[in-house]
Design a protein around this nucleic acid. Structure first.
Length: 316
DNA sequence: CGCTACTTTGGTGACTCCGT
DNA sequence: ACGGAGTCACCAAAGTAGCG
């Protein structure tokens, strides 16, 4: 094409703009799926949902091109799209893409995707249409974290993501004696289901992390209970038995500095003089970004150990 | 093989429309 | 009001067909 005209589309005056919200399948030009298209569908399935911006970071150089291609995949029913609510004075936000049933079937027919537990194929990864805005927000936040980590490890020498898990295979419960020294301790069973669990290989070291995304909706008491759960997971060496790993840390990402300080003070109450001082690490959403992925490997993390105000890198 | 012309594919900028 | 996104026009590189 040298003159800007498409042979199959004669220039007949001004075309009516297609709706962004309703699929118009009349005169739909055929779609030839590329390897990249399949990779996009796989990623959307794995992440559950991705914004056009996030998909660009993974697969394209140009956002313009990204939108065009995603629009075509949507037109052909392979992806679903959702429009986040618009707040006055903010304009629209990037479209959120999820895997459509047709896209899931297509992946299934190509051998599909197996989830981290090695069991479930991708069709169940199609996204629940009735998911709440809070859940969307939470998933987008988690994906931003995973995406920044993925992109950072592409750029950083000697750092590799060994795995990322966020499915039911990391659902666990820890039982321990819960007490504060004043009232009698009672046996407590705390469910643990991290937002993510990942491993990094740094040179010859292997590091493992649980990720907790905090949107400021959990009160201190529940947060303390959850941290106690992780602490006893560590104390009982349950991570060795269950995951075959020797070490782990819990990364908590939250909304603001004030909230973070509050959570750090809460986390400090967990330990009872049995070690584990480096277990809990904290940062805020604004300290890393997918635009500058290496930021997530930078010195942006605060530890909940006493008298330690320095910022750390998760590679430390 | 080497040259030319054309096609295909992917990228950019400007403009305009869209939906809340 | 606002910024995302669809359309249009255009550019550039790579691929390909035809020809001597």
């Amino acid at each position: 094409m040298t003159n800007g005209q498409t042979p199959t589309q004669p220039p007949t005056g001004k075309q009516k703009r297609r709706s962004r919200h309703k699929r118009d399948t009349t005169n739909l030009p055929p779609l030839e799926l590329t390897e990249r298209d399949v990779a996009i569908l796989q990623s959307v399935g794995q992440f559950q949902l991705l914004s056009s911006k996030q998909i660009q970071l993974l697969f394209f150089r140009s956002l313009h091109k990204t939108r065009k291609r995603l629009f075509r995949l949507w037109e052909h029913g392979l992806l679903e799209r959702r429009f986040p609510p618009v707040h006055l004075g903010e304009g629209t936000r990037p479209v959120i893409y999820t895997l459509a049933p047709k896209g899931a079937r297509l992946l299934g027919s190509q051998g599909g995707l197996i989830d981290e537990a090695g069991e479930r194929a991708i069709p169940k990864a199609t996204f629940n249409r009735k998911a709440s805005p809070l859940f969307y927000e939470h998933t987008i936040r988690r994906n931003d974290f995973q995406l920044a980590l993925t992109l950072a490890c592409r750029q950083a020498p000697n750092v590799e993501v060994l795995f990322w898990r966020q499915d039911r295979s990391i659902k666990d419960a820890v039982t321990f004696l819960n007490g504060n020294g004043k009232t009698p301790a009672i046996l407590r069973k705390v469910p643990l289901f991290a937002d993510g669990f990942f491993g990094l290989e740094v040179k010859d070291r292997k590091l493992y992390f649980f990720v907790e995304i905090d949107r400021g909706t959990t009160d201190n008491k529940r947060f303390l209970t959850k941290m106690k759960g992780y602490y006893h997971l560590w104390l009982q060496r349950r991570h060795v038995k269950r995951y075959g790993i020797e070490n782990f840390r819990v990364l908590v990402v939250t909304t603001s500095k004030a909230r973070m300080e509050n959570l750090i003070q809460t986390a400090k109450k967990v330990r009872q003089g049995n070690g584990g001082s480096g277990l809990f690490w904290f940062t805020t959403f604004d300290r890393y970004s997918t635009d500058i992925p290496l930021s997530i490997l930078g010195h942006i993390w605060k530890r909940a150990s006493a008298g330690n105000g320095d910022d750390h890198s998760i590679l430390d």
